Computed example of a mutant assay.
Amino acid sequence: MKKHTIGLGCPNFDIAVYIANRPLIEPYPFLASLHSLSHDEIAHIGKHCGNGWRKVFNVYAKLLYSLDNKHFAHFQTEPTWQAYRDKTLLQTGSGTALLFSAPILKPHRNTIHIICGRTYANELQRTAQINSSWVWLNDEFAIDKNNKVIVCPYFDYRQLSNIKIEFLAQQLLVLTQTLKGSA
């Protein structure tokens, strides 16, 4: 059976975040493909699905906004991370995706894959939905430079604090420099 991408975001994503759960309002529980968000859809999901989803979107936007501008300027098109979240994140042309399906690793593509949560990452490997050999950097972060995969804490303020967002941003920079070195 051929794998396909299910989730929210831009079809031509550069950064994909993988999460084990979905928003529980229509149409998200039944998505079978990639759905680009429209203006105000993030606010709609946050309003109807609660603070947990607002945190996921906030942490994603904060991460992108904290990236090195020299290598990731295309994610910093708005004056603040909040404006980026509301006007660009997960929309067509953003280069971002929040996926509910397992990663499809393509070594020739420059996509960076971020798996939210050690438990989810281990489950993906245990069920053979991903074949990745990551190296644990500490108790919470792992990296597979060959497949461009990072495992990090869940996108929540308590689990992925600002200090940990900065650490994750540094690991994305490491992967980007690895990609350029192998090109």
Rank of each mutant, 00 (worst) to 15 (best):
Q91S: 12
T178W: 07
Y157G: 07
K70E: 15
L173W: 01
H71F: 15
Q125K: 14
I25F: 04
N146P: 00
A16E: 06
N51G: 01
L105E: 03
S38W: 09
V59Q: 13
L90C: 07
T127S: 13
F75A: 03
Q125I: 09
P79A: 14
W134F: 13
C10W: 06
F167Y: 12
L34R: 02
A121G: 12
K70M: 09
L172A: 02
A128I: 02
F75I: 05
T92G: 09
N58Y: 09
I45F: 08
H39T: 14
Q129V: 02
Q82E: 11
Q125E: 10
G181Q: 09
T5H: 11
E26G: 01
L8Y: 13
K145A: 14
N138S: 06
P107I: 12
A128D: 06
L124F: 09
S38K: 15
W134G: 01
H48K: 14
D156F: 05
K106D: 12
S66C: 13
S36K: 06
S161I: 08
V149Y: 07
N51R: 11
Y28P: 06
V17R: 08
C49E: 11
A61Y: 04
L105C: 04
H108V: 09
L124G: 04
P11A: 05
K148G: 03
K62T: 05
H44Q: 11
L67M: 04
I25A: 07
